[in-house]
């Protein structure tokens, strides 16, 4: 017969291997009172991995530097060449203008989408569905080739004969086609980001603003929008970085931008890799600057979270006031 109690007590007495009874309390107190003198554990695995990574990086640097086919002299020569800088300016222009268009449109569409009127909200959903769903490169090509289906563009007063018109090819330059494609595509994402920002602000914030006599527009501007910014800025920063990189896609229609310029140069001198490196370095540089800017912007927007109390601004007379209600 199995004596359950005896088996249980046997298990209880058994100590795991390597276990060691703690010294008596008086000894422990002596150990605790001394400054810490601990033999740290070693982590040989980490050292091996670190050595491996360093070795790999050294090998990579040596291989790249020694490779005569890359044409490092060309990298140096073209890094600050007027053509490349002009292309870089084009990229910045394209990204900046498209982003502004996308942010403005995003706010407008998000506001329309929040409307109780179903036509408005369905229109916005349809917009996001189309412009987010169709690949960006398709949209670029479509805007560039608009003249194929609408040869003439005209602006006029509806139901009257007054209008201005122009050849689509003359109006839709590669630059404008790029702006439209990048901006409208990006606006679909911005609409979703702004919508998320609006949803993230509790309804009570707007209600409190209304309760102190603000109109809905004032409540939106003074209370709701500033709080949406905190939610909107981080993903918008990501979108801006994405847009900067996506602007390279307009090289398919030959706009003035960094990658197109690099391609033009290497189509003549065949220094393909060197010019791609030049372009990459500039992209990384701009993105680094943007990232730093975003960091500071976010810190500013979150100052009420980190700072908590602007105690330094408190005036001494206020500090002396009693803590108890004295109405």
């Amino acid at each position: 017969m199995l004596d359950v109690r005896r088996v249980a007590s046997a298990f209880a007495r058994q100590q795991p291997p390597g276990s060691q009874a703690a010294p008596p309390h008086s000894e422990l107190a002596k150990l605790a009172s001394r400054p810490p003198d601990v033999q740290r554990r070693h982590h040989p695995g980490r050292w091996v991995a670190t050595a491996g990574v360093l070795g790999f990086l050294a090998w990579l640097a040596k291989t790249l530097a020694a490779n005569q086919l890359i044409g490092w002299h060309a990298v140096g020569r073209f890094m600050f060449s007027p053509a490349i800088l002009h292309g870089l300016l084009g990229t910045l222009e394209l990204t900046g203008v498209s982003m502004v268009l996308a942010i403005v449109l995003g706010f407008i569409l998000a506001a329309l989408g929040a409307s109780p009127n179903p036509v408005l909200s369905w229109f916005v959903r349809g917009y996001v569905w189309v412009f987010r769903g169709v690949p960006l490169i398709v949209q670029i090509l479509a805007w560039y080739n608009l003249a194929l289906v609408f040869p003439v563009l005209a602006i006029g007063v509806p139901f009257s004969s007054w209008h201005v018109q122009g050849s689509t090819n003359a109006v839709i330059t590669p630059f404008l086609a790029s702006i439209l494609a990048l901006g409208l595509h990006e606006a679909a994402y911005m609409t979703e980001i702004v919508r998320a920002g609006l949803v993230a602000v509790p309804a009570g914030q707007a209600e409190a603003a209304l309760s102190v006599g603000l109109t809905r527009r004032q409540a939106l501007r003074a209370v709701v929008l500033p709080q949406t910014l905190r939610v909107i800025v981080p993903p918008t920063g990501n979108q801006l970085v994405g847009l900067l990189k996506a602007s390279a896609l307009v090289s398919v229609i030959g706009g003035v931008e960094l990658l197109t310029t690099a391609q033009r140069i290497y189509s003549v001198n065949f220094e393909v890799m060197a010019l791609l490196i030049v372009a990459s370095v500039w992209y990384l540089l701009v993105i680094s600057v943007l990232t730093v800017g975003q960091h500071f912007l976010e810190r500013r927007l979150n100052r009420d979270k980190i700072g908590g109390d602007r105690a330094a601004a408190d005036t001494p007379d206020a500090g002396a006031a009693s803590q108890e209600p004295q109405l």
């Binding site: 602007r310 601004a313 408190d314 206020a318 109405l327």
Partner: peptide, 20 residues
């Protein structure tokens, strides 16, 4: 606003954000 906040006993917390 200062006067009112002093009246409700918060004269020392004028510049605190709600979270704190």
């Amino acid at each position: 606003a200062r006067d009112l906040l002093v009246q409700v006993g918060l004269g020392h917390r004028l510049h605190a954000y709600p979270g704190s």
